[in-house]
Amino acid sequence: MTVINTTELTKRYNGESAVTELDLVVQDGEIYGFLGPNGAGKSTTIDMLMNYTRPSAGTATVLGLDAQQDASEIHVRTGILPDQFGVYSTLTGREHVAYILDANGATGNPEGILERVGLGNAVDQRAGGYSKGMQQRLGLAMAIAGEPDLLILDEPFSGLDPYGVRLVREVVTAERERGATVFFSSHVLDQVERICDRVGLLSNGQLIAEGTPKDLRDLAGVQTQLRIDTDSDSPSTQAIRELAGVKDVSDDAGQIVVTCPRTACYSVLETLDDTGVNIQSFDIEQGTIEDAFVKLATDS
């Protein structure tokens, strides 16, 4: 089943395009990362999917329903964490989650939901006293309340410390395992790469590339490099040049740089050791989705 489907979706403000002819397909049960810098058009796309703003051209369906004509039904089945989420300062965390459950006619335990996002000790604390990170986690709790079919998370890592970032990843993974589809936008590219099945790279309102993180690294020519320091000015490298997966080997004053998949790094180190090369230290520099984005955006 296709959960999100857009065809030539376009939004213009005063003649300037924020999103241009976006063709996007998100399948049931996948985690899809919608990636790009601030101002790329990610939040505008989400606003059109949720009918917060109307497109200038093109069409969109969500959960098989028309994004404009069936907006109310889509909202009931979708949990959303909007960008720059705000709380009702006089309401407790429990009351925020209970409100969402009631509004969507869903059942659930607010205390248990808040426990999942690390707010178990602040259930009955007024949200006006929450830190920014706690407010963000409250927004996540409200999004997952009622076990929605679709989760849309707009910049979910905003304002979070490393613990909060890891918690978001864990919640997203658990929701996918429950059967939900997760669509989230972020400019924190390295975090999204860890959990996404597929990603779409958005630049200046246009989708410039799409695929698995590996697909995009390969498309951009981003490579993993193994840097090895030895005690020899001219170590023997012929044996590792013949290893499967090794694409390039260079040697400069005893530092060997090998371009190869991460899975081949151990074989390179083992082979050098077997040939008598004394390895003093090594470091693996793996190309990231951020490296791929920069390369693809520049090329586009």
Rank of each mutant, 00 (worst) to 15 (best):
T298G: 11
V168H: 03
G287A: 05
T212V: 12
D83S: 09
E193D: 12
T181N: 06
T90M: 11
S185P: 06
S234Q: 12
V257H: 00
T275S: 14
D124V: 04
I152G: 04
E95W: 00
S250G: 07
T53W: 04
V172S: 05
Y88W: 15
D233E: 14
R94K: 11
R194P: 02
G86Q: 15
V294S: 05
R217H: 07
P213M: 03
K247A: 13
E111V: 13
V246S: 00
V246L: 05
G105I: 00
Y266L: 13
A127M: 12
L207N: 04
V192S: 05
T78H: 08
G221Q: 11
R116Q: 15
A145T: 00
G164R: 05
D190S: 15
H96R: 02
T288H: 09
Y130I: 11
G287K: 01
L22E: 01
I195Y: 03
I279G: 06
G205M: 11
Q225G: 03
C265Q: 11
L226S: 00
P37L: 12
T45S: 13
E175I: 07
R137F: 11
D248T: 13
D23V: 12
A143N: 07
Q69A: 14
V97H: 00
E16L: 14
D149T: 11
D197Y: 06
G108K: 01
I74N: 00
G139L: 08
T173L: 15
V277D: 03
K247I: 10
G86Y: 10
P55T: 06
S72R: 15
E16W: 11
V268G: 00
E242H: 11
R116S: 15
I152Q: 00
L153W: 03
E290W: 02
R137Q: 07
K11L: 09
Y266C: 10
G86N: 15
H96M: 05
D70T: 05
D229S: 13
G276A: 10
S232P: 03
I113H: 00
A141M: 04
T288R: 06
E155P: 02
L226W: 01
Q280I: 12
E170A: 08
T263Y: 02
L91S: 01
R178Y: 09
T78I: 05
D124F: 06
D218M: 10
G159Y: 02
D102H: 12
I113G: 04
T271I: 04
D215Y: 07
T107S: 12
R126N: 10
L114R: 07
Q68W: 12
L269H: 06
M134K: 10
E210P: 01
T275F: 13
E285D: 13
R166S: 15
A141R: 02
Y88I: 09
A127L: 08
F293A: 00
R126C: 09
G58A: 08
G133K: 05
R176K: 15
D218V: 09
D273K: 10
V171Q: 01
Y163S: 15
D70Y: 01
Y13A: 08
A145P: 01
H96L: 08
V3A: 01
M48H: 03
A244L: 10
V62G: 04
S158V: 12
V87A: 05
L119F: 04
T230M: 06
D233Y: 09
R137D: 00
V257Q: 11
A18L: 07
A40T: 10
L153Q: 06
G254I: 05
L114F: 09
R176Y: 07
L243R: 07
F34E: 04
P82A: 08
A67D: 02
